[in-house]
Amino acid sequence: MRKYILTAAAALALALPAASFAAEAEIHIPAEKWSFNGITGHFDKEQVQRGFQVYKEVCSACHSLEYISFRNFEALGYSEAQVKALAAEYEVEDGPDDNGDMFKRKAKPSDKLPKPYPNEKFARSANGGALPPDLSLIAKARHGGPDYLFHLLRGYDEAPADMKLADGMSYNKYFPGHQIAMAKQIEDDKVTYADGTKSDADQIARDVSAFLMWTAEPKMEVRHATGLRVIIFTLLFTVLAYFLKRRIWARIEQH
């Protein structure tokens, strides 16, 4: 009996803090269905490619992706040639050359994606004092992750009558404090998808959220696959050890 009490108490001791983390976010963020949820969760490559298109055409005007290089897009199913062509669409600064001058050249697959602003001060002054955060890790850096990103992008609304918005701010149901410096960006047909997918606002927000989950956790698929193998192997070891233990202990437990 006391074993069960102890076990229950131990479980409670471990579960309580976990529950408290969940309770921390004050705004309820509904959970969405994602292809990367679950034990064998994986990225829907077409969706992530569409999301990249959204980033390129909409978000990249203000938000950087500082940890992403062009070469990373090969993981999304682009060929090496496509990645080279994609990189060549961009110009990056290089140098100094033999005369000591910096120069512009076409980007290579090993280059990082160019940032929209040269530095933080510039970014702030271009955005009324607000700093558009880098998006590489945003899906891991906010409570709710991709669910939050999706609802944030769709959460713009009229401010309640009793709320006074500061200058240049927008009302958003899901942003902590409800006043967000980013204006509403995602609307129906904001982008035209190359693969012909219907581009309503929900779809756009969903795709770009999936893309940002990929930029934050590009190794997720290999992690899930590795994990499955590791768990099965550990389970095998544990079962073997259990039977070996029973067999060896049988010698003394008979007494």
Binding site: I39, H224, G227, I231, L235, T238, A241, K245, I248, W249
Partner: peptide
């Protein structure tokens, strides 16, 4: 040793579940 091997196995199952998922 054999009991600990079994115990480590069970513990690792929880550990790996968190590490990978």
């Amino acid at each position: 040793t054999v009991k600990d091997a079994f115990g480590v196995g069970v513990f690792l199952l929880f550990y790996f579940a968190v590490v990978f998922w």
